[in-house]
Design a protein around this nucleic acid. Structure first.
Lengths: 111, 111
DNA sequence: TAAAACCGCTACGGCTATCATAGCAATATT
DNA sequence: AATATTGCTATGATAGCCGTAGCGGTTTTA
């Protein structure tokens, strides 16, 4: 079982666990942002639906990321499936503009 | 040598390499956002200065991330040291608000 | 009521990424 | 000529990730 990075506990880049470093540690794991993105972008989803939406994620990693995101209060599981919490949605509003930025980025790289 | 995720090439979560998935793959690597953050937040830095600022990053990983970020056009090296490009700075403007958000997040988790 | 499908996972073995530490060749400084 | 600084690279250990298979439980279908 992996250690879950939370503010106030030692994380990568900050022994005291500064909030931003804890966040970057949390999100800087394979599929962490992808799962949050997929969940916010597509709405409620069961474990297996999430798996499908992510196309190539393995269940063990999906499970690990979900545990972390839940512990961080970004994702929750109501009886029906996994959902982003208000906190998670709020973080997503910062993530979302990166979608448009990425398109521009793709064009820039063509030259 | 690791494959560098760029839009248009197969990446995690998208075989066609959709821009956002390429970006999430690029940034979803250990220290990727941390390096960009540290560089933008603290200004130009030599390899070793970056290493110090990141506190616990190993030179091999720093080197790997720098290669990727340079290939992605987010970071560059002028004779003096490493710098974020205009593109990199622009992406950072989307990253930066997460700093404040993270502080709020830290408070929320205390309850 | 029995079969089929779906639920959230977990186990496994193999590969890749990351880690900390040491050190090297080249240039700049003293 | 010696020292310090530059950007890395080598190494060997550990942790993370991958794909596949499948389990025990609930819900839906025939």
């Amino acid at each position: 079982m992996t250690k879950i990075p939370l503010p106030g506990t030692p994380v990568r880049g900050s022994k005291s666990g500064s909030p931003i470093m804890a966040l970057l540690d949390l999100l800087g794991r394979r599929w962490a942002m992808g799962v949050l993105w997929t969940l916010c972008d597509g709405g409620v989803a069961t474990f297996r639906q999430l798996q499908e939406r992510c196309e190539t994620i393995s269940p063990s990693v999906l499970n690990a990321r979900l545990k972390e995101l839940r512990a961080a209060g970004l994702v929750d599981h109501n009886g029906k499936g996994y959902v982003a919490t208000d906190l998670g949605q709020e973080l997503y509003t910062h993530l979302e503009p990166m979608g448009d930025w990425a398109k521009k980025w793709a064009l820039t790289l063509k030259d």
